[in-house]
Design a protein around this nucleic acid. Structure first.
Lengths: 338, 338
DNA sequence: TTGTAGGCGTTATCAG
DNA sequence: CTGATAACGCCTACAA
C-alpha cells in the first residue's frame, strides 16, 4: 500500500508538495501538480483517512445518533442526509440507541474525544452536560425533528402539526376529538406529550374546553395506538375523531376500531402523523412531515457550522401539511351512530 | 485533552505501562495498575481511537454497506447487528447506496485503504473486483440476506421461502398462483427474479406446469406491487393467489385488488414476505424472515472472522416460517366468483 | 514487571 | 512555489 512518501519519490518531489496537491492547495505549479497526479495515478495511491485524521485536525467524520424507535422514518432521513453530504467527504458513524442508559452512554462518548467533527442527533434532546461539553469544545451538533434553542435544530413544530390535525377535524364537524400522543422524551416516562399544547390550543380556540379523558400517551407503534384506542372507545362519551402522533399508532387505532365494529371514517375519524411510506396505500389521512428535507437541511446546517464555527445556533422550522385520504369524515349524527 | 503521557506522568510510570493497563495486559502489577487507573480517573483521560487506529493496526471500525431500498427492514437489522456487536468496541460507519453507480463507488472505496477492519454488506452481491481485493487483503466481509459462496453469508433461502408460500396456497386449494418477484440485483434490471426458482419448483412438484403469464417483477414498494397486480388481474385466466417478494408489494396488491372489487381473501389470496412491523396489523399472511437474527448472526460471524482470519467462509441459512393471518383463503369455486 | 525508543502517514510550519 | 522536519497519540518491540 503506497504512502505519500512513495508518491513523493516517484514524482521526484517532497512529501509537502504531494500533500498540497492532495489538498488542492493553490501553492503548486501546474507542471508539478501534473507530475504528482500522474505518480498518484500510477501507484494507485490513496491517502489514508486515519493518518489524515491523526495528523490533521479534522476526522472527516460525523456521528449520527439515532434512537431505534425511529422505524421506517430512518431511511427517509438518511436519504436526505446523504443528499446534504453528497458533495463532501464526510463519513457517517452510526450510534444507535435503544434505551435511556444507552443514550446516556452514547452522549457521554460523543464529543469526549476527537472521534468526529460534529454530530447529527435524531429526535432526542441531549442532556445538559453534553451541551456544555460540546459548546466548550466548539463541537457542532444539529438536532433533527426536535428543538433546543442552545443548538442548531431542524424540525417541524409538533404543536402546530397537532393544531392542523385538530382544526381539520373541527372543520369536518367533530367536537369530540381525542389525542394519542407520544412522550416528548421517549425514554422518560415522566415527560409530557410532544404535541399536547397544540392539541389543547386548537380546541381552546374553537371554544371547546379540554376534554377530561381524551388524552393518551402511547408508544410509537401500531400496538401502542391499538391499546390507546381501546381505552378511548370505552370512555362514557367516546371521541368521534382521534389524532395520533405517528402513522404507526394511527394504523393500530384504525385496526382496533374496525375490529370493535366501528366504521372508519363513519363512526371514527383518524389522523396519522408523518405520512410514512405505507400511509398512502392504507388511505390514511395524515400530517405530512418533510422527513427527507429535515435530513438534508440538518446536514447542510452542520456543514455550515463546521465551516464557520463562530455562528450562533439557529432553529429551522419546516412546514407540515394535511394529507387528506380516507380515514376522516364528518361525524355521524348522534342518534344515527351505534 | 489529556494524553497517555499526561497519565504516565501523573501516575509516575512510563507510557508503556499505561498502554498495558489500557489494553488489559497481564504484565502489570496490581499496585501499579491501581495507580494508573486512579490517574486515568483523576484526569478524565480517554484514549483517542484515531491515534489508536493509526499506531496500532486495527481501526475498530466496521463498514455497513446498505442499499436504501431496505426500508423499515433496516432498523430491525440494526437491532440485531447492535446486539451482536454489543460487547465490543467496534463502531459502524454507514455507507448508503442509492443506485448502481453509487454501489460501484462504495465497493471501490470499501477495502481500498485501511479505513475499517471489516464490512457488513446488506442485501447485495459484491462485484468481482471487490471480492478479489478483500480476499487478497485478508479483509473480512459478511453478506446479509444474500449468498455468495466465496464470502461469509447469513441469509434465508429465498427460493425455499417462495416454495413455502406456494405450497401453502396449494394446500388451500389454489391452482392458479402468480408470483410478484423482485430483481435478484435491485440495480440490474437484467437480473432474474430472486425466488423464481422456488416458485417454479413448488408448482412443478405439484404437477402444475409453470403458468405462462403469471410471473412479474416489481420494485419493493406498494406501488410496484400495485402495478404488478393490476397487470395480473387482466390476464385471460387471472390467478386466485399471488405470492409477493415483500410485504410492501403485498400491501399494494391487496389494496389494488380490493379497489378493483376483488375480495381478499375471497377472490384473491395474497402472501407477503418478511413479516414487517406493519404486516401484523394489516392482517397480512406472510413469510416470516428472522431479520434481527440475520443481523446478529452476521455481526457474530464478522467478529469471528476478525478474530480468526484463516477460516474458510461459511454460508449460514436461517429458516423462514409461514405466518397465517387474513389475506389467504381457499379459492372460490369457479362459478361462484365474480 | 517496567521504562524508553521507534514507527505509523498525514498535516503544518518553517526556511529557502 | 518547494523541501525538510516537527508534531500528532498510541502501540510494540527491546532493553533493563
Amino acid at each position: 500500500m503506497p504512502t505519500i512518501s512513495d508518491v513523493a519519490r516517484a514524482a521526484g518531489v517532497g512529501i509537502g508538495t504531494v500533500s498540497r496537491v492532495l489538498n488542492a492547495s493553490p501553492l503548486v505549479s501546474e507542471a508539478t501538480r501534473q507530475r504528482v497526479v500522474a505518480a498518484i495515478e500510477r501507484l494507485g495511491y490513496r491517502p489514508s483517512p486515519i493518518a489524515r485524521a491523526f495528523g490533521g485536525r479534522r476526522t472527516q467524520t460525523i456521528e449520527l445518533l439515532v434512537p431505534l424507535f425511529v422505524g421506517s422514518f430512518f431511511v427517509e432521513l438518511l436519504r436526505g442526509i446523504e443528499v446534504g453530504l453528497a458533495t463532501t467527504q464526510y463519513s457517517l458513524v452510526l450510534r444507535t440507541i435503544e434505551g435511556a442508559e444507552e443514550r446516556q452512554r452514547v452522549f457521554d462518548d460523543c464529543c469526549a474525544r476527537g472521534n468526529s467533527d460534529g454530530a447529527l442527533v435524531v429526535w432526542m434532546v441531549p442532556p445538559q452536560p453534553f451541551v456544555e461539553r460540546m459548546t466548550a469544545a466548539g463541537f457542532p451538533a444539529v438536532l433533527l425533528n426536535v428543538v433546543d434553542p442552545r443548538l442548531w435544530s431542524v424540525a417541524v413544530n409538533h404543536d402546530t402539526a397537532a393544531e392542523q390535525a385538530v382544526r381539520y377535524c373541527l372543520r369536518l364537524g367533530h367536537r369530540r376529538i381525542a389525542l394519542v400522543d407520544r412522550l416528548e422524551d421517549a425514554y422518560d416516562t415522566a415527560s409530557r406529550g410532544i404535541c399536547l399544547r397544540g392539541y389543547r390550543q386548537a380546541l381552546g380556540e374553537a371554544g371547546l374546553g379540554v376534554p377530561a379523558d381524551y388524552e393518551r400517551l402511547s408508544e410509537l407503534t401500531a400496538r401502542g395506538g391499538a391499546a390507546a384506542c381501546d381505552s378511548l372507545l370505552r370512555v362514557p362519551e367516546p371521541p368521534t375523531a382521534i389524532v395520533a402522533a405517528s402513522d404507526a399508532q394511527a394504523v393500530g387505532i384504525v385496526q382496533t376500531a374496525r375490529t370493535r365494529g366501528w366504521r372508519v371514517p363513519g363512526d371514527l375519524s383518524v389522523v396519522g402523523y408523518n405520512d410514512s411510506a405505507f400511509a398512502e396505500f392504507l388511505g390514511l389521512t395524515t400530517v405530512q412531515v418533510p422527513i427527507r428535507e429535515i435530513g438534508r437541511r440538518a446536514a447542510t446546517a452542520l456543514l455550515g457550522a463546521l465551516a464557520e464555527p463562530g455562528n450562533e445556533p439557529e432553529t429551522i422550522y419546516l412546514p407540515t401539511d394535511m394529507v387528506v385520504r380516507q380515514t376522516c369524515g364528518p361525524p355521524q349524527p348522534l342518534n344515527a351512530g351505534g
